[in-house]
Amino acid sequence: MMNSLTIKIKRYDGEKTWYQSYILPYEKGRTILWSLTTIRETLDSTLVYTSACQHGICGSCAIKVNGKSFLACQTPLDKVIETFQTTELIYEPLANFTVIRDLAVAWEPKMAKMKKIKPWLIPTEEGSEEKGFLQSNEDFHKIASSTDCILCGICASECNQLHVNESNFLEPFIWNRAYRYAVDSRDKSPEAHVGPAYENELWKCLHCMACVTNCPKHIDLTEEISSLRKMSIRMGETKNQGARHAFAFFNDVKNNGHLNEMMLPIKTDGVIKTAATKLPFALRMIKTGKINPLERPKKVDGIEGVQKIYDYAEEVENK
């Protein structure tokens, strides 16, 4: 029987960082946000965190608990106790954000970054202030899920690329925003959103699925990133490592069924770059017998059937 919770909070006063422990009585059915409020109201009025609506709408109360990000108002303490099998909980601010104080993080730099993808509607001539801007049910459903984003920052906190990226990679919620305007039937300029997305390292997403897994609004961010990549290809952005790598898989399956691993670096990077950068790697692989330069994948049984399936998909898309 649990009687109490030990909550260790990562504190930051603008200069130094430390962990501070608080003991709270265990009460069934309480949320993470309840623990924060109770600590501030009864134990330590100096604790800084943000929250407002308490209903999973404003997106301001996300924090990390035992290394994973949660929306504090919507997450029962019982759930995190069960997940981590402990009543010792460690609260930290979201990762991949600048910390202002304790659990409060800065959004201004993220919003400045978001402006790059023009997070606003670039209207077609069909709508006006007088007429309004009608959209069909079908067209609305294309953006319905992506407009659910509450900017809680959990996707960014969990993003494995952002953990190691020191340049321009965009936060998943920014990819979502680029997608949301690019597919909006009322927007006349999808490329104005897709272009900057492409230029800000669209192909560096690791496809790890951490954003999709942790989004409290269940937005399929990985599928949106995939759609942005397809749109960038349609805009003509095919001469890059990401697109060439994906085309190598696409064509290998069509031609043989299996991937030709030996040729993959050359198809992705070209002969010259591969020779310059991948030679030590290739020699190590050959030396241990991991790859055999003379081996070519054989066509799989039924490859004609695979090619007919490709032809069919092409017909469907051309319709």
Partner: peptide, 15 residues
């Protein structure tokens, strides 16, 4: 018999 590559998280970016 006759299995192909699963797409390896790449093919959906093309089609």
């Amino acid at each position: 018999k006759g299995w192909t590559c699963c797409g390896a998280s790449h093919i959906q970016d093309i089609d």
